[in-house]
Simulated assay, not measured.
Amino acid sequence: MDVAIVGASGYAGGELIRLLQSHSSARVTVATSRALEGRPVADQHPHLRGYTDLTFTNPKAGDIDADFVFLAVPHTAAMNFAGTLLERGIRTVDLSADYRLPKDVYEKVYGVTHTAYFKAPYGIPELHRDEVKGAQFVSNPGCFPTGATLAAAPLAKYAKYVIYDSKTGVSGAGDNPSATTHYPNVADGVNAYKWTSHRHLAEMKQELSRLGSPAHCFFTPHLVPVNRGILTTAHIILDEPMAQDEVEALYRKFYAGEHFVRLQKPTLPAVRGSNFCDIGMESEGERVVVVSAIDNLVKGAAGQAIQNMNIMCGYVEDDGLKAPACLP
Rank of each mutant, 00 (worst) to 15 (best):
E126T: 06
Y117H: 07
Y99T: 08
K103R: 15
Y110I: 11
P102H: 12
A97C: 13
Y99M: 14
K119N: 06
E87T: 09
K103D: 14
I124H: 06
Y106Q: 08
P121T: 03
T115S: 08
G111C: 14
P102I: 06
A97N: 11
V105A: 11
G111L: 13
P102A: 15
D94Q: 10
K119E: 11
R91G: 08
I124K: 00
L101R: 02
H114I: 01
Y110M: 14
L95W: 01
D98Q: 05
G123C: 04
K119Q: 07
T115H: 10
G111N: 14
Y99W: 05
A97D: 03
G111Q: 10
A120S: 09
V105W: 05
H114F: 06
V93W: 04
T92V: 12
D104C: 14
A116T: 07
K103Y: 13
H114L: 03
D94W: 06
A116E: 05
L95P: 04
K108Q: 15
I124E: 05
E107S: 11
Y110L: 13
E87N: 13
V112R: 10
V105F: 08
V109R: 00
P102Y: 04
K119W: 05
D98L: 03
S96W: 06
V105G: 10
R88Q: 01
T115A: 11
Y99N: 07
K103H: 15
H114T: 00
V105R: 13
R88I: 08
R88G: 02
A97G: 02
I90M: 04
I90H: 00
G111W: 10
R100I: 02
G111S: 11
E87D: 14
D104K: 15
R88K: 13
S96D: 12
V93K: 00
I124A: 07
E126F: 01
A116K: 06
V109M: 05
R91P: 09
V112L: 12
P125A: 12
K119G: 09
K103C: 14
D98T: 00
P125T: 06
E126L: 09
R91K: 12
K103N: 15
I90F: 01
P102F: 07
A120K: 00
E87L: 11
L86E: 11
R88L: 02
E87S: 14
F118S: 05
A120I: 05
Y122R: 00
Y110T: 10
L86S: 12
V93Q: 01
V105L: 14
D98P: 01
T92S: 08
Y117D: 09
Y122Q: 07
V105Y: 10
T115D: 12
G123F: 02
A120T: 00
K103M: 15
